[in-house]
Design a protein around this nucleic acid. Structure first.
Length: 459
RNA sequence: GGCCCCAUCGUCUAGUGGCCUAGGACACUACCCUCUCAAGGUAGAGACACGGGUUCGAAUCCCGUUGGGGCUGCCA
């Protein structure tokens, strides 16, 4: 009997927890739980320029919400620099890497002219100094870099199709692939279960693994991608990809988890509503399909409905209450100053937890006739795409907007308030927008602009 | 362009050579139930991308074509 597996989920703190990451985490977790293995959480935050500490909290909460508890970690790559430095030093000592200072444009140009992809090894034998200031590239040896994949059978590869990839940035920081391999070795990861978008990285991974002398490689499993209804990969801009968005809209974590499990996997019969226990005992990596799946929110909502239906009324009250509490607790103090009754507490905060704001038709008709209305909304859309998303920055942006449009700040505020919050009065705008989030705010502003075309509303 | 991958109803899937006149679920249509809406019930429409093989027999195996996707960053 093989030893208990060690698997990991290695998200990077980019600001939200991707649905695909959620599914990857789930499959890793199911695999570990079934076989009594360990599920390790590692935060891949080597990119110091993008690193945002506050985003880490989001990762932990999303994982907890989905009920995926980890056994070790969170580990942070940003705190493990010595390991990477040592590994890079070994590569340098072994002559496995070389320095490169080609410009990206030049690399692309040469690749295009040569009719191939990636880097062409231009600096391979130029003996440039391997000091900080130069990118360090791995000298891909001749041979094969195939690997075992539990889902897409064995993946072959000829090294001539693998470019000399970078392992250390010119600023001295390790690159993803290096840190990834070093950590998997250090954490004794036995199975690398990740998205299919990583297959080409995996060839580089095994090459690096061997060069570092780590012994037997892990087994790989590349999960099919989750695509949007266009069949393209889910995009942050166009699609709702964050796990927390679904949570905030009132999907139950067990329903989302159940639905995600069924994307690429099935228990082999007609059952669709599965308990975690059933998933744990029946899940098989080998049964995961290798074809990508489209994410269908209609189906998700149907699964969600099934879970709601299965509750007792008391349970439903509990769950709905907890959900609501989490939604409006952040504005509780602001609400307190304004609400005269408990009922008002809810009407004042509706804009947060409803999918659409409840529009005050009379106020809308009155305000939207003003000439500054549409320009304000348009300017807000333009400004909000760029701005840092916190109350102070939003205030700053609106002040600048008002100046640019040469109007008072309240004249740009009220169209925005109406479009986003639904009415002319209510909680302070900047905090409300911050809380609502950039995406939902922008969506509502755009809806508002469309609604203008339709003319006055019936009161 | 280069490298790689994928291919069953609109969508998620069952199916691993005969049990398939291809099953389920979502969505859709009709009817029943019903104060509305849900929920539930019944019925319906709806797929093996195409072309060649292999085989007594192919959704299942092989080849090609077509279509789709991923990767192609000093991001991860």
């Amino acid at each position: 009997m093989s030893p208990a597996p060690r698997v990991r989920i290695a998200p990077s703190p980019t600001g939200y927890f991707h649905l695909g990451t959620g599914r990857t985490a789930l499959f890793n977790w199911l695999f570990a739980r079934q076989l009594g293995g360990q599920f390790v959480l590692r935060i891949e935050d080597t990119d110091t320029s993008r690193n945002r500490p506050e985003h880490i909290e989001g990762i932990l909460r999303a994982l907890e919400w989905l009920g995926l508890d980890w056994d070790e970690g969170p580990f942070f790559q940003s705190q493990r620099g010595d390991l990477y430095t040592a590994a890079i030093q070994k590569l340098i000592d072994d002559g496995a890497v070389y320095a490169c200072d080609c410009r990206p444009e030049a690399i692309q140009k040469r690749a295009k002219e040569a009719g191939r992809s990636g880097y062409d090894g231009h600096c391979r034998d130029l003996g440039k100094p391997m000091t900080v200031g130069h990118l360090l590239r791995f000298r891909v040896p001749p041979g094969e870099s195939g690997f075992t994949d539990l889902i897409r059978k064995d993946v072959p590869s000829n090294n001539k199709d693998v470019e000399d990839f970078g392992v250390r940035k010119s600023n001295g920081d390790p690159l993803f692939i290096l840190a990834n391999v070093v950590d998997d070795a250090d954490m004794r990861i036995s199975h690398v279960i990740r998205g299919a978008d990583h297959v080409s990285n995996t060839h580089k991974y095994v090459l690096l693994w061997r060069a570092l002398g780590y012994g037997p490689e892990p087994v790989f499993a590349h999960l099919p991608l989750i695509n949007n209804d266009q069949g393209r990969k889910l995009s942050k801009r166009k699609d709702k990809v964050a796990v927390e968005d679904y949570r905030d809209e009132g999907y139950l974590s067990e329903a989302l988890r159940n639905y995600l499990a069924l994307l690429g996997w099935s228990p082999g019969d007609d059952r669709e509503k599965l308990t975690v226990e059933e998933m744990i005992s029946e899940f098989r990596l080998e049964d995961v399909k290798s074809a990508p799946a489209k994410f269908d929110e209609k189906k998700l909502s149907s699964v969600n409905k099934q879970y709601i239906l299965a509750m007792t009324p008391d349970e439903l009250v509990e769950r709905a209450q907890a959900w609501l509490r989490a939604r409006w607790a952040p504005v509780a103090a602001e609400t307190q100053e304004r609400a005269r009754t408990l009922a008002q507490v809810f009407t004042m905060t509706e804009f947060i937890y409803r999918p659409e704001p409840v529009l005050d038709a009379a106020a809308w008709n009155k305000e939207s006739k003003k000439p500054g209305f549409a320009p304000s909304l348009q300017a807000a859309v333009a400004a909000f795409v760029e701005v840092e998303w916190d109350a102070a920055s939003i205030e700053e942006a609106l002040t600048a907007m008002a100046e640019a449009l040469d109007v008072k700040i309240r004249d740009v505020q009220s169209p925005i308030r109406l479009a986003v919050m639904g009415g002319p009065v209510g909680l302070p705008l900047y905090q409300s927008l911050e809380l609502l989030g950039r995406d939902r705010t922008l969506a509502r502003l755009r809806v508002g602009l469309e609604r203008l075309q339709a003319g006055p509303l019936s009161v």
